[in-house]
């Protein structure tokens, strides 16, 4: 009457133990990457109703962000321009280019264009553009180098951890106010965030709070 369990089963526990550890590590790594906004949001590049290129407008022609997003320094919401703003130039430039047909049609009929939203914080988060943009935080910190994007891409994770990093050490992301809309601005050589950055923070009395009431209410 032989053994129920074959001989090799004696080595099984060791195999299971080691295998289990390795598999567990892989799952944890997978979840921490794939399940968090670092993956689910970054790289999101939807097709827009009109192939508007920031690279051309803001990069090459150097149009200031506030020309189209004119309320960014007045409200929590940075508005998307209506077709009328586009038509200020495009009545002359590329007046009959087929790619701009939806813009022209939207302008005549006052029917707004449904742009596809890329950067969106959850409903329970109250992000405010005005207080950041007026206080030395540039668009590039959160939206990345938009002036080099032909199609706008979700470049930063915009997760809570992302916001907290900046709120915890604002001196690394603060820049002089007049450089806020200059997306190509790099801190000059002798710029040391500990010295100049902290200097700006103290001078402007920046209190970027870590506490919940700054974003949640």
């Amino acid at each position: 009457m032989s053994n129920i369990f074959p001989k090799w089963t004696n080595r099984l526990p060791l195999i299971l133990l080691v295998g289990g550890l390795v598999a567990g590590a892989c799952v944890v790594a997978g979840v921490t990457y794939y399940f968090t906004p670092k993956y689910t949001r970054v790289g999101y590049e939807p097709i827009q109703p009109v192939a508007f290129s920031h690279e051309v407008h803001s990069g090459q022609m150097g149009i200031d962000c506030r020309y189209c997003h004119n309320d960014v320094d007045k409200s929590w919401f940075s508005n998307i321009p209506s077709a009328e703003t586009c038509m200020k130039c495009h009545t002359q430039v590329l007046a009959d280019d087929p790619r701009l047909a939806p813009i022209r049609e939207s302008f005549e009929k006052n029917k707004p264009l449904p742009w596809v939203q890329i950067h969106k914080t959850p409903d329970y988060v109250y992000f405010n553009h005005a207080v950041h943009v007026n206080r030395g935080v540039s668009c590039v910190s959160c939206h990345g180098k938009v002036n080099e994007m032909d199609v706008v891409k979700h470049s930063k994770s915009l997760s809570m951890a992302f916001c907290l990093d900046c709120h915890r050490n604002p001196h690394e992301n603060v820049r002089p106010q007049d450089e806020v809309f200059n997306l190509n601005w790099e801190p000059p050589a002798e710029w040391d965030s500990e010295r100049e950055g902290k200097g700006l923070v103290d001078q402007m009395k920046i209190r970027s709070a870590e506490s919940c009431s700054s974003c949640h209410r």
Binding site: Y44, I80, P81, P112, L113, P114, W115, V116, Q117, K120
Partner: peptide, 14 residues
Amino acid sequence: CRRPEEHIVPFGSE
């Protein structure tokens, strides 16, 4: 999979 596609709808005209 990503969040459902959502739209920002500006005004018809200024």
